[in-house]
Design a binder for these strands. Structure first.
Lengths: 127, 127, 127, 127
DNA sequence: GTGGTCTAGACCACG
DNA sequence: GTGGTCTAGACCACA
């Protein structure tokens, strides 16, 4: 798998390692990363995105301890077989739920009409 | 103004002072805090939410330097008159835009159908 | 003496009471406020500049304890007779010295050529 | 960069953190701190000047939110690329303007002759 | 190693 | 009464 599967925003306030872990969680839940599939090496990811290899390594380590990844001798990291891989739409929806709740809270603080928000999100989802 | 206008999640990864500034930005943009309105005192907010006064003070100070609040000497902080107060729906929408973009990105990583996401958000907005 | 002799910037970071005391010190040193001259009442100053009477009162009190002013029964505050009134140019220059030192320091941090700074100040003094 | 670039007056009425931010603004505008240059660490500055690290941290944070500095994660603060770096003499002059205006005002209150003030400032700038 | 956040508490400045 | 500043120190997050 190519290092470009991960999107990194080094300037974002969200820590880089968490950007990686969160993306892995979603991509694996959706099956975009299939069980057993090899991940790009720490070196590749770090080089491609110009970030510190230690940061990538840490992210992989956290993903492993979360059961998302497994270390295979000689092959590096692969997507773990287990309860996390390729989940139902209902389970995947739950991963998005906290973010949606926050969206709703902010929209209400901004007193934005629901349909304005929904229309905009629909447009963004259409891309 | 009552200290309860602000919602604080002490356990959130988002720093408390930033929770406060972000909320103020939205509440002021929406006009829920009107220009010239007095804010709850640092001590009131700190006491009400059981957090350190300095944390609140820091948030107020940042909001002031951002032009959201003004200090009235000896009286406290009031909502600043200026370009930030009571904005149009279009401007308020822009404050939500980055969050919505991230929502869309996560939904796509999760390969969630657009209508599922929209239905859920609609429900959350209906509260 | 009219309340307009004092210039107040309520929005300045410099505290109002100190703006008053510092101005009195300079105006008295220069003889613009003559020994024995009556000052505008606390009420007049506060009303004219829309500031808190307590602030003016405090400034007058400090000026009194510094020997700049004297309280005369029935007349209010008057400029004190004493070593502070109507000083020589040399003595008045010393009141400006700290400010000039700071000017020089900032100009050097900004790497501004001396003649540029002097030309500008000359122009400002010419008004 | 050495912690000695910054000058701190702990006894000054101007708060320490503002002394730092103001100096940074000028040093960066003049290019004495070049774009991309690393700043002394919070701990170095705090140790060198015997002040609390949090005070320095606060100054750095404000300078960051003003666009003067950028955080390089894990490495420290560097001078930001952007509109604030290395400005023209004209722009730098504007940073001094308010201070010069105040100088002129005080000189006039003291009824000091322009040439006396200018001669003194010239001498101070000659150092 | 870097900076960030928060607390507890003292003390000050201002009105 | 209001907010501001600073300290000492703990602990965390990040690279």
């Amino acid at each position: 798998m190519d290092a470009s599967i991960l999107t990194i925003h080094p300037a974002s306030p969200e820590p880089i390692y968490r950007q990686i872990v969160d993306q892995l969680r979603r991509l694996i839940a959706a099956g975009q990363l299939a069980v057993g599939e090899r991940l790009p090496s720490v070196r590749d990811v770090a080089g491609f995105h110009a970030i510190n290899p230690m940061t990538v390594s840490r992210a992989y380590g956290l993903a492993e301890s979360e059961g998302l990844l497994e270390r295979q001798r000689g092959k590096g990291m692969v997507v773990a077989s287990g309860p996390t891989g390729s989940q139902s739409a209902r389970e995947r929806m739950q991963l998005l739920e906290p973010h949606l709740k926050e969206t709703a809270r902010q929209a209400q603080e901004l007193e934005l009409p629901a349909d304005t928000v929904l229309r905009r999100l629909k447009h963004l989802l259409g891309n």
